[in-house]
Design a protein around this nucleic acid. Structure first.
Lengths: 206, 206, 206, 206
DNA sequence: TTTTAACCGAGACGGTACGTCACGTCTTGTG
DNA sequence: CACAAGACGTGACGTACCGTCTCGGTTAAAA
């Protein structure tokens, strides 16, 4: 995840933290420019004016580097929205987030998804990093909905936050189906709002 | 996707369809046995008693081969279930499907997802092939729910079928979060049933 | 050497001798156009509008085909010369022959030399075919020299004819050293004439 | 010819000259053991415990490697001979050299000749490398002949040294005619000695 | 201030898979 | 049967990238 923790030796020249950043930035830029397949260690080294030895001194392999780069990457955060009602807030927020995923953030998320498939431990970190950057926004919107009385406090918000990334990344990166206003409205009206308005828990439903 | 479409020439020795099958089967088996990374063209050729030339005559690169193999692959279909009520049918059906995805089908789906990221045209075929193998089962279950009066006919079933694969593949292959009975029950009770029971369309909801 | 002799079967469609010629001609032309390395069986087949099966029905492998093609090839024969004295006749004759070797005949001879290295039986045929096309000319020149009294009848002409091709092919195709008028004059004056004028046999020389 | 000349950069890990030698030695040995056709790059790499990348870093293709290997190869040098007279010295020396060409040196020379056909620049180096290893021996023999008064100082020895390799390589590798004692004696008596004893230059001869 | 040990860029190294190409054989349909 | 077309198995080619290693040279803390 992070550059291989170094047993702090008191002797010798210390590592230059600026190299880490240069290498990670080069990696992110390359992913955005040429995609995952052609984002090679050698290209990253060249772009960062670093040597392969310097890279492998910090990360134990290519995947670790890419993941650490993605994790350090600052994803675009959707802007604050307040349309006056929950439905339009959700639609607006999701639209913004989707716009980001189709832009420069897309390549980066795509890499994270690929890397995670080969590394379960890494995958477990995804929801953490993804949620750090979105949950506040979503929570804020939903809190306002609760205050307005649009939805109940007992709604299983946690569950929604777990499934939303899957719905969008699958549609955008895997099936390449359109994620337009119509789809987002259907999703909000057909799935999200019914779920949020549903106050019974799984036991009551029986 | 499929073996390089050949302009049906009447001249020359015709291609042997059995080679296609042998190669694709070898590819699928290798993916299941050793995983995507070590599923090399040479290993596939050896296992299928074919030559690399024969493979590259049909598919323009490794990815195309794997995709075609996955597409021809017969995914396990969940068995018929009838627990007497919609909720338990859904839980049972999903549990079976998830079990498959964690078993031999998993490696195959994983490849499909990776390949799709680099090939939008391929990705568009995923919902088709996925749905061919699941929709009948789901539809059957839901139809029974409608007949029993558990849900309304106007439910947006289409939408649900589009988002379900994303929810599960994301959780199983990307984040590696548990997909156990508890999660499935939460999903059914918190998302699916509320959505199916919701009869308003997006306009009425305003 | 020649198209694989076929046990004359009285049944079925007879072979079309025109195919032999078309294939051999295509082979010779390709050698002259693109050189030995890129003169492939497939290119020959395409140029001759023949199939590989037809080629392999006649010759057991590529080498046999090329050799047979070379052997059927009509090498340029040096024109008759008569400068009035043996020295100038030799110089003129050799100059003409060298000119041919540097022209279209070169590629063909070059192939013969390459092929011979891997096939001793084939190599033994070289002096025969080479000499068929040169010996008459040389003999004629030397005969006139004998009649003029310039050289003795006992000169070992046979030996000279055996070493001359080696001297020129080595210089032209291997070392690529210049084979200009000066070299030819030195060769005639320093080697050929002294040899022809020498009347002692190897025993007398002791 | 030689390993791709590297701009003597002071940066980076320097190339290991021992790899060059190991690879070239492996190439020579393979040529001698299995012949040119089966002397593959992969076999060379395996024998030299090197990787293909290392080979292709130094030579741009198989031919360049083989040529450089041949050029670095130390050909057998004929032993010193002194039979008391020029004729027998020449016969003895040539017999020894021919014996070498039919032995392990043969495969190596054969490769050089083939390679030279496709590479004029390479060919021009042949007379240099060939003569470095033979001229001293020949010169020594001829000098003794001059001192004994058997031949004149003005003999065109240069010319003889240029044509001798062609005579033998043509006969040994191309036509596969016998190169036995009888042929060598005929050559010495009929060609070499008359040429050496001839004191007229080409102008005087007119 | 000198020593020391790890840093750094550059790039060689062994390894492994890729995708291409030619060989010589085999299999169609047509004449 | 011959023939054109072209698929087939085989195996070498040359390329690209991985992760490791080895240079000369630099840099900061310890002695």
């Amino acid at each position: 995840m992070c550059p291989a923790s170094k047993v702090s030796s008191l002797l010798g020249r210390p590592r230059d933290d600026k190299r880490d950043q240069a290498i990670q930035s080069a990696a992110i830029e390359l992913m955005q420019e040429v995609g995952y397949e052609r984002c090679t260690i050698e290209a990253i080294a060249a772009k960062a004016h670093a040597s392969k030895a310097t890279i492998y001194r910090r990360w134990k392999n290519k995947q670790e580097l890419l993941v650490s780069a993605v994790n350090r990457h600052t994803f675009c955060t959707p802007p604050e929205v307040d349309q006056g009602n929950l439905r339009d807030d959700l639609i607006e927020m999701i639209s913004e987030k989707v716009k980001n995923l189709k832009g420069p953030d897309g390549a980066v998320v795509s890499v994270l998804l690929t890397a995670a498939k080969n590394d379960p431990e890494l995958g477990k970190l995804i929801p953490i990093s993804i949620r750090e950057i979105q949950d506040d926004t979503v929570m804020h919107i939903i809190d306002r909905g609760i205050k307005r009385g649009e939805i109940s406090k007992s709604a299983n918000i946690e569950l929604l936050l777990e499934i939303l990334p899957g719905i969008f990344t699958y549609r955008i990166f895997m099936t390449h189906q359109p994620v337009n206003r119509k789809f987002i409205e259907q999703l909000v009206d057909g799935i999200l709002l019914p779920s949020l308005q549903n106050q019974r828990n799984s036991r009551e439903n029986k």
